[in-house]
Nucleic acid binder design. Sequence first.
DNA 1: TTGAAAGCGGTACCAG
DNA 2: CTGGTACCGCTTTCAA
Lengths: 371, 371
Amino acid sequence: MSKIFLFLFHLFIAARKPNFLFMKKITIKDIARKFNVSISTVSKALNDSYEISDQTKEKIQKYAKKKNYKPNFNALSLKKRRTKTIGMVIPNMLSYFFAQIFKGVEKAANDNGYKVITCISNESYTKELETMEMLSNGSIDGFIISIAKETELKNNYKHFEMSIREGTPIVMFDRVAENVACDKVIIDDYKAAKKTVKHLANTGFKNIAFISSTSELNSGKSRYRGYLKGLEKLGIPFNKDLVLNIFEEDYKKYEALIRPLFENNDIDSVIATNEKTAVAALKIAQEKGFKVPENFSVIGFSNGVLARHSTPTLTTMSQHGELMGEAAAKMLIEKLESKDINREVATKIIKSNLVERHSTKRFLELSKPKA
Amino acid sequence: MSKIFLFLFHLFIAARKPNFLFMKKITIKDIARKFNVSISTVSKALNDSYEISDQTKEKIQKYAKKKNYKPNFNALSLKKRRTKTIGMVIPNMLSYFFAQIFKGVEKAANDNGYKVITCISNESYTKELETMEMLSNGSIDGFIISIAKETELKNNYKHFEMSIREGTPIVMFDRVAENVACDKVIIDDYKAAKKTVKHLANTGFKNIAFISSTSELNSGKSRYRGYLKGLEKLGIPFNKDLVLNIFEEDYKKYEALIRPLFENNDIDSVIATNEKTAVAALKIAQEKGFKVPENFSVIGFSNGVLARHSTPTLTTMSQHGELMGEAAAKMLIEKLESKDINREVATKIIKSNLVERHSTKRFLELSKPKA
DNA sequence: TTGAAAGCGGTACCAG
DNA sequence: CTGGTACCGCTTTCAA
């Protein structure tokens, strides 16, 4: 009888603490003690080793399951010298493009049993460097990186080379360093820009302005070259006044910067290297009395929420962020899991395609024989 | 002479491999060997222990720095039983709100020496559960979570309770589980909705429609209650026909769903619980010939890119995602680093405020004495 | 001031 | 089939 009281008393004491019912995570040792076997037996049983009798295996596995046993991540990583974790460093997350990238990376990683630690460089060289240093202590097996603007301007890629030399592979995407020997995933910016010019010309617009907010970046340069080449191939004379490079970060000023382009020139269409400038151009065209797409067209790059919700909706060269992210993660994981240390590096090009919405006219292919 | 040849030969061989110049990461052991001291001496020297002579400390620290030594993360975590890593589980990343949250969490985490592993639940209960299980093996010290829609509908919060019981604390934000005893960060949805009604009424609009795409979620319910209360306080009769609940995921169908609201009712303003529906309503109002904000007003919740780039720009009840993220991370870190196991749980409310753009008229406060 | 050794939670080799 | 033990890289106590 007194036993019952004692029990109730203890229950009472225990129940007053928030961690009443607190269940410590169980270890292999605890299981070994429970069944009076050695830890190696438990380890083998849990790993379904042929060395252990079915009987023992069963009871140990059952108990482990019941107690929600999970092998400790850090012990495992320490032992196996791999963490199954990817470090991702991107300039920001508020851009739809990078959010898409993240989605792709996270998916491919998870499908392969990897986790993702994500860090934001904020376009800062120092932050990028520090972040990589922070993760280069065995936290991760490899990096997925899109280079910060500042780093690209500085042209200082030592930290990438260092990481590779220390045995932590890198896959770069979109903003890549030409001369760093690592796997890369990029967009065919050059071709994509050529295509935009062609589409505009095909639908009757020849006074094509080019608005770039990324002229310092390699991708921006490729797009500019594509624009030039596109004009050339179609025999449209190049007019430098139709090119506007924006260095302003504050989107509120975009319209003011773009307006003169409309006022000082006779343009009938715009190619913009990102969504925000494209939408700004769209607004101004309408403000100036143009009907889009009847007598004015706009094409943007990347397709995020803005493109889908502007009035009219924006035709864009899609960047397929999610695909890129997936591709990057797959490349990295394959590298991490391949035995071949001396593999060649590769560059994967993700095709972009024109997503036709309502800021351009449809081009009806007439070269094909009619049905 | 032959020595030189031998050297050149080896150099030649080495240079053919990509991992020429490969530098293995150095450990405490390597340093100990280098100076013929014990590993404990090295460990102490690196941690600036008073037990070690300045001389020894200096040479060891210098060498470590030169060789870019970093204490192994997994060994440290194993030993200290803490990873300085936060696990974040959110329904998706393509929504601007969650991207903002991420930004805030990442910042606060980094400032305090923490990393963030981010996983997407895709609004799926199963994925949320599996993700948490995957991370509950010592990978992380605590969770920051916004509950998946499916979980909220199922009302199944066992996995959260389990995690807490096992000693892994949780901070929930925005979509929280009332009955789970953990720290929370939420928005004052109820008050916020009341404020929107008040603003519209103050600027002369009384036929206020309410469009909700989150009526199943707690936050959606609070906003609805706020809407009702707001009407009541202003003596505006409630008309159930002015309430539209959208369960459709495909944004392309929004307009078709919203149009009847305009056609069957006499409304002069809309409160929408998210940006996409707000923008869709904005478009239809204009399509129906209204002038916004002259004779029609729209207020949305959350303020992402859409609000800032729509025509006209959208007045919103700001959700301050970044602040919320920061608050959540700080709460979690404080909990993790406090010695007091039995701390009470707390709920932090982040105030939302009206960001006035151009889809509403300005309300000029006249109650104050004129200057 | 320095070193030996135990231990964090596992794996895997070798012995019995 | 089961157990002992070294080791992954580091911290920390205790002894010298």
